[in-house]
Design a protein around this nucleic acid. Structure first.
Length: 892
RNA sequence: AGGCGCUUAGCUCAGUUGGUAGAGCAAUACCCUUACAAGGUAUGGGUCGUGGGUUCGAGUCCCUCAGCGCCUACCA
């Protein structure tokens, strides 16, 4: 009933077909109402302009593995997808397109431009979804949400209005970060600080009414046009007497007061600071403390304004140059020093960020942060790894008001209307027809849009139909886990916590799983601009999505960054091929196998099973147990590695090899039993592997003799689901197989060390220490002969050891001497070397143990079983050494 | 400046309660053995960054120092 499979697995031929089949069958769908327990993850919405990058690949693979695992574990699993309108990013992309066509945003006006962006979105907005599907993301696509969808927009408005009415949103004139190329405010978090080479200029400010001069140190001399004070430290004896007097600004001649403020560091520069409240955050605070006027010297486009007098219309850097020249010419410049300092850059445009005085909307975050802090402190929401808790809590302590307005066109427009008649601002969920104060109809909507992160902050409930009281919310809120990188804890996680608690009265998620970032081989963060980012879609095309997923999952450990290497990916691609070929062999071995009617429940007669059969079932049980424990604790790499080892080493290297003599043998009850075990093991193996490598496992599943309709919705093997199957394995089988494996390994070692050609069959004598082991060896004689390539094996007394290689096999509770007569087979001298090597190793190990056991305190304090085990081990070593010495003496 | 993290085999990294160090890749030797050369068998390779402490016993817990990295704040 099996068809022929190609000997190489081709992911490209399989993955997209399988994905479409899953989707067409509706397997990704979750139920709003269900008897199953809910499990929900909301996808951190990628930018609608985004292309899938390695960061997504990492983030999504974790989520998909979790979702698939939970889905198979009987949960009503919902992975809710969506995309983010990404205000600045998208606006920039579309503007760039327009520019190519010779069009501009400003010329076409707001309405037309927004229409063009929507057009762009319609065309390219689902590109990222298509790429996610290549990765295997099993999202419930029918629920996909875009942040500008009607439902989400309604939620945004409701939240805005609500917070405004409660005075948690306000509009105010404040100093904010201004990106002049984009002509918009940006939040603190969108500013990147970079060490930059600059100069420190010492400028002399004459003191009014005296010959004194104050030397002011500054890195931005052009801002002196906006100076409204000069400050010194109140305890600075050099300048105490000048406090209260006025200084005369060079060039403009304007008078400014000399004030005292503790903010000034006496030891830095000259100990005198010029105060420019409208262009520096510290100065802004000093200005507020002293009630200083604020002089803004910049236009929105970054050029100097009328306040700059003769410098009006110049760019900041040009003005700086000119002013330095003028200061020098006027004799005001005392000196210039090279100076390194950190400068803020706009993370979007790359331009230097200017602190800029402007009218913006703010969220008062401190009251919101209180609960958001407490729920994490109390453990209602936990961070994993736990260390991020501190980062989060610290930020919640120092949190500042959040500037939520952006001077962009693409986004949620601020739902506030300014009355031209009375000046009142009407904030409302539905567009008002008239001013709520004077009833005038001369209303104009606020021009600003909201920070993209404002809508993102509502994501966990806005995507589920809030403010409606939906079944989705009832079932899935709070969500179970949020999976994200540590770079957006502040941007996003913290804000979702605040909003969720405020509007849903409950945390948005029970757990925040923080993972690391993807780096290149040199440890650099992957980024487009650095040109070092691997393209996951390309990698998927070359190696397959499964290989990429497994590479990620096998390496990701407790939130650490992961260095991506294609070599490693190749290794796991080989693993996929290994699985494929193991299946190919198995299916051939099952050609004449009749699938039992009771499918997964069918078990063979225990008496018909071989030791290998018992053993592989027991190994399956162990690995299932291990994987379950690791998955429960989010130790994905441990789970992945346990599976890797199980498949490659246990199943392929041992089980399949052990079973070959039976499979190739005559039809019998024993052979049928082994076929059944093989079929059942394949079934469990695919189920265990599926969350990690969904495509290949589903493809294989469809060809298995024992299977259900679809692996993706079959059950995940645990001690409970597969209790009966695991119970068919005899407990003795593990021990029995250990003996067999060790004996084979010992013979192989003798062969390898003595350079006996693989093709050359040899004779071996096995001398077991007791009847139990003797029985085991007898029962597995065929297997041992095959795997060790023997032409004959004798089991019994050690006999004459003359010219023999000997390896005492070490096992707790078992001992066998493996004896290979070497005469005519190899050079005796080689064997002498081998025995010396083996002896040294045992002596070394024994030395450690005897030293330990010689320590009274160890014997007194260590657990008894440990001491006993060590003693037994020493005894065994002693016996083994004796055998080796004996063997050595008989060689010469 | 403060906070956090890292330092284990040539490379990339695991190592959950402290009990004689592991994986993948790379390397070496031999093999196209009828599932797989994207494979098999065997082998070599580490005083777990430094110095100290706790303990019968430390890669694992505590302290010191060094190097690297990240985050936050910022020097006018």
């Amino acid at each position: 009933m099996t068809e022929e499979l190609p000997d190489r697995y081709s992911a490209a031929d399989v993955e997209q077909r399988i994905y479409q089949w899953w989707e067409s069958k509706g397997y990704f769908k979750a139920q709003d109402v269900s008897t199953k327990p809910p499990f929900c993850i909301i996808l951190p919405p990628p930018n609608v302009t985004g292309q899938l990058h390695m960061g997504h690949a990492l983030d999504h693979t974790i989520q998909d593995v979790l979702i698939r695992w939970k889905r198979m574990s009987g949960f009503n699993a919902l992975w809710l997808p969506g995309t983010d309108h990404a205000g600045i990013a998208t606006q920039m992309v579309v503007e760039r397109e327009l520019k190519k066509k010779g069009e501009s945003r400003r010329e076409m006006g707001r309405e037309e431009f927004v229409a063009r962006v929507w057009e762009w979105k319609r065309q390219y907005g689902s590109r990222i979804y298509a790429q996610m599907k290549r990765l295997g993301d099993s999202c419930d696509w029918d629920r996909a949400v875009f942040t500008l969808d009607e439902g989400v927009s309604k939620a945004v408005r409701k939240v805005f209005v609500d917070l405004y009415k409660r005075n948690l949103i306000y509009k105010g004139q404040r100093l904010i970060n201004w990106s002049w190329p984009l002509e918009t405010a940006i939040s603190d978090l969108e500013v990147e600080h970079r060490e930059t080479k600059g100069s420190l200029w010492y400028v002399e400010y004459p003191v009014e009414g005296s010959d004194d001069k104050l030397t002011v140190a500054t890195t931005r001399p052009e801002t002196m046009l906006g100076d409204t004070a000069v400050a010194v430290h109140p305890e600075d004896d050099r300048y105490k007497r000048l406090i209260g007097k006025s200084a005369k600004l060079p060039l403009s001649g304007r008078l400014v007061p000399i004030i005292a403020d503790e903010y000034v560091d006496k030891s830095f520069g000259s100990g005198v600071v010029k105060i420019t409240p409208a262009h520096d955050f510290n100065d802004y605070q000093v200005g507020n403390r002293h009630g200083l006027p604020m002089i803004n010297i910049l236009e929105k486009n970054g050029l100097l304004n009328a306040n700059a007098g003769p410098y009006e219309g110049m760019k900041v850097l040009d003005a700086r140059k000119k002013i330095v020249e003028d200061l020098k010419a006027g004799g005001f410049l005392a000196k210039e020093e090279a100076h390194k300092h950190s400068v803020g850059y706009c993370s979007r445009s790359g331009a230097v960020v200017e602190p800029f005085l402007s009218e913006q909307w703010f969220v008062r975050t401190k009251p919101l942060a209180v609960q958001a802090r407490r729920t994490v402190e109390s453990g209602t929401t936990r961070f994993e790894p736990e260390m991020w808790t501190k980062t989060y809590l610290h930020w919640m302590e120092i949190i500042e008001d959040w500037c939520i307005s952006r001077q962009l066109w693409w986004g949620h427009r601020v739902p506030a209307w300014h009355c031209a008649d009375c000046g009142h601002v009407t904030v409302a969920e539905t567009d008002p027809a008239s001013c709520e104060k004077c009833q005038g109809t001369n209303l104009g909507q606020d021009e600003d849009v909201l920070d993209t992160w404002f809508s993102s902050a509502l994501w966990p409930f806005s995507t589920m139909g809030w403010p409606g009281e939906t079944e989705t919310l009832k079932t899935f809120y709070p969500t179970n886990v949020l999976v994200t990188g540590h770079d957006i804890i502040f941007f996003w996680v913290a804000r979702m916590m605040m909003m969720g608690l405020e509007f849903m009265r409950d945390v948005p998620f029970r757990k925040v799983l923080i993972h690391g970032l993807v780096r290149d081989q040199d440890g650099k963060k992957m980024s487009k601009s650095a040109g070092n980012s691997a393209d996951p879609v390309e990698l998927i095309e070359t190696y397959g999505a499964d290989a990429l997923r497994f590479t990620i999952m096998a390496q990701i450990a407790s939130g650490r960054d992961l260095k991506f290497s294609e070599q490693r990916l190749e290794g796991y691609r080989n693993f996929m091929n290994k699985i494929w070929n193991a299946t190919r062999f198995s299916l051939a071995a099952l050609k004449d196998f009749q699938a039992p009617a009771d499918g997964e429940k069918a078990s063979p007669n225990r008496s018909d099973m071989s030791a290998a059969d018992h053993w592989i079932i027991s190994r399956t049980q162990s690995v299932a147990k291990e994987v379950e424990a690791h998955m429960e604790e989010d130790r994905f790499s441990e789970a992945a590695n346990a599976l890797y080892h199980f498949v490659w080493n246990d199943f392929c290297d041992w089980y399949l090899e052990l079973v070959k003599p039976i499979i190739y043998g005559a039809v019998s009850a024993e052979r049928s039993a082994t076929q059944l075990v093989l079929a059942q093991t394949l079934n469990r193996m695919m189920r265990l592997l599926h969350p990690f490598i969904p495509f290949i496992t589903e493809e294989i599943w469809q060809k298995l003799p024992i299977r259900s309709e679809a692996l993706i919705v079959d059950s995940y093997p645990t001690q409970r689901t597969d209790k009966d199957w695991f119970a068919t394995a005899s407990k003795d089988a593990v021990f029995e197989m250990e003996v067999v494996k060790e004996v084979i390994a010992a013979i192989r070692n003798i062969r390898g060390e003595n350079s006996i050609k693989p093709g050359q069959a040899i004779k071996v004598r096995l001398a077991p220490a007791d009847g139990r082991v003797q029985k085991i060896l007898g029962e597995n004689k065929v297997v041992i002969m095959r795997l060790a390539r023997l032409e004959d094996v004798e089991i019994g007394e050690a006999g004459n050891l003359a010219k023999c290689a000997l390896t005492p096999v070490r096992l707790p509770e078992a001992s066998v001497d493996v004896i290979v007569p070497l005469e005519g087979v190899i050079d005796i001298a080689e064997e002498v070397k081998r025995i010396h090597k083996a002896t040294e190793k045992i002596q070394k190990d024994m030395g450690v143990l005897t030293k330990k056991l010689g320590n009274e305190n160890f014997v007194k304090n260590a657990p008894e079983e440990l001491v006993l085990a060590d003693r037994a081990q020493v005894e065994q070593f002693r016996a083994q050494l004796e055998r080796l010495r004996d063997s050595l003496s008989r060689l010469q």
